[in-house]
Each structure stands twice: as structure tokens, then as C-alpha cells.
């Protein structure tokens, strides 16, 4: 008997294949056209690396990349740290849990556009100069909430007895935190860091409302080029590189985090 080729399995595999085509066809076409000689994206006329060469000479893009990376990095670090501290304080004072949740969850739920305009007006009122800092703040408010929720979910699953044992063995509060809590939270911290990084890196809405003249991130650049003009091969080259970077993160993330979700259970019905 060939289990894999029964009719029902055939349907399943074709369905999955179809979904994968749905997900990857646009990306594949985009990558393909990034190597296209012709500027027009109707036919593939020949292979070239010209667009990549232009890309690395494009100072505007490089600056935008630098801005995006620096904001995303700092935002991911700050929000994961603050989220960790908040989640850890709940562990020590569980009666605060509900109150803190009520405060921390709305930024995740509220539509981004509303949060963005409120920040824009706030910065206007306090007379802040729009730029790196304002964009950073906008990204981080959401990210803190995300980090908190992610880390809190996992901190719950650490038995309090682990801490007690560590303490009885002579570990002070800091040693317990460093040697027990942090290592056991690694999956949540990794998830939090990666997701907040990518959220910030690809954020458009809040950025567009809180940025100032002359301050551009990659999504802003993509927006301006893609919406005003048309799709350009240079943009395709940039997109291709960013997609490759994303895939690397994705593989790492899936290995580290996602497969754990389903790991514990025996599969195949």
C-alpha cells in the first residue's frame, strides 16, 4: 500500500502546493524582474546585475536602510527589555496581573492609524522635532506591549519552585534572574526580539505620521517610489535582498520557536 498516493493525500498535497504558489509567485516574479535587463516588467529580456549595482550606489536608499535598521534594533532591545521587566514584576506580584494587562494590551488592539495620528498631534503639541526619535517612540509603544504579552505567556510556565530551589542553593535575586529566568525565557525573548524588530523595520503607518522632512526609512522609500511612480527594477533589487534577509530570519525563528509549539504531541492521525 502506498499511503502517500491515496486520492485524499493527493488532494492534500496539491492544495498545499497551490497555497505555496499563491504565497511565492509574486515574490518569485519580483526576484526574477530584479535581474531583468529591460526597465519594463512585461517581458524578461535578459539577465543583468545592473540594478543591484545601482542600488548600492544609491545614497538615499543606504541612508533609509541605516535609519530603518538603527530604529528597529534600538526599539527591539528597549521594548524587549521593558516588556521583560514588566512581565517579571507580575511574577513577583501576581495580583497586579490584571491591572497591568489592562494597561498593556490596548496598544496591540487599537488601529495603527489612530495611534499614529495621536502621536503626531502629541509631538506637535510638545514641539518635538520630527525625526529618528519620534519615529522610534512611535514604534516602541506598540513593541513594548507585544514584548510584554509574549514574555508573560512564557514566564507563567516557569515553576516558582525553580526559583526557590535556586535561592536555597545560595543564589541571590540577580543570580536567580540571570541563571534561571533568562535562560528559560530564551524562546520568548528571541520571539519578542525578532518580531518587534521586524515590526519596526517594516512599519509604514506610524512612520509616515511621525517622521519629519528629510528623515526616511525603507518602507517610506518603497512607498514613495512605488505609489508615485511605478514598480522599478531597482526597487525589485532592493526588495529581493530584503526578502532574502527575511527568509533567513524566518528559518531561524521557525527552528527556534514555532516547531516547539507542536513538538510535544505525537502526530499523524
Amino acid at each position: 500500500m502506498c499511503r502517500r498516493c491515496s486520492p485524499s493525500n493527493l488532494i492534500w498535497h496539491s492544495y498545499i502546493l497551490a497555497v505555496l504558489v499563491f504565497l511565492y509567485a509574486p515574490i518569485a516574479v519580483l526576484i526574477l524582474f530584479s535581474f531583468n535587463e529591460s526597465k519594463y516588467m512585461t517581458h524578461f529580456t535578459g539577465f543583468t546585475l545592473e540594478w543591484y549595482a545601482r542600488l548600492v550606489e544609491n545614497l538615499r536608499i543606504l541612508k533609509a536602510l541605516e535609519n530603518s535598521v538603527s530604529i528597529a534594533l534600538v526599539s527591539a532591545v528597549v521594548s524587549t527589555l521593558l516588556g521583560l521587566l514588566a512581565a517579571y514584576s507580575i511574577r513577583k506580584a501576581p495580583y497586579l496581573s490584571l491591572k497591568l494587562d489592562t494597561l498593556m494590551v490596548p496598544p496591540i488592539v487599537i488601529p495603527e492609524v489612530a495611534e499614529a495620528v495621536s502621536l503626531m498631534m502629541f509631538f506637535y503639541m510638545v514641539g518635538a522635532e520630527y525625526g529618528w526619535l519620534t519615529v522610534f517612540i512611535g514604534h516602541t509603544a506598540f513593541n513594548i506591549s507585544y514584548a510584554y504579552v509574549t514574555i508573560k505567556g512564557q514566564i507563567h510556565s516557569i515553576s516558582p519552585n525553580l526559583e526557590k530551589i535556586a535561592q536555597s542553593l545560595g543564589a541571590g535575586p540577580f543570580a536567580v534572574f540571570r541563571r534561571i529566568i533568562i535562560p528559560l525565557l530564551t524562546p520568548a525573548l528571541t520571539a519578542s526580539f525578532l518580531v518587534t524588530f521586524i515590526t519596526s523595520f517594516s512599519d509604514f503607518v506610524k512612520t509616515v505620521f511621525t517622521t519629519g522632512p528629510g528623515f526616511e526609512t525603507l518602507p517610506l522609500y518603497v512607498w514613495r517610489v512605488a505609489v508615485r511612480g511605478r514598480a522599478t527594477p531597482e526597487l525589485n533589487a532592493l526588495a529581493t535582498l530584503m526578502i532574502l534577509a527575511s527568509l533567513v530570519i524566518s528559518i531561524y525563528y521557525t527552528r527556534k520557536i514555532i516547531t516547539r509549539l507542536g513538538e510535544s504531541l505525537p502526530k499523524q492521525v
Partner: peptide, 13 residues
């Protein structure tokens, strides 16, 4: 952490 006490819990931890 200053008492020098050894412990074993039901869940072993």
C-alpha cells in the same frame, strides 16, 4: 540564600 538549606520539592524542580 544565606541560610544554607537544601530543599527537594514534590515536582523536584
Amino acid at each position: 540564600q544565606k541560610r544554607n538549606v537544601g530543599m527537594v520539592f514534590q515536582d523536584l524542580a
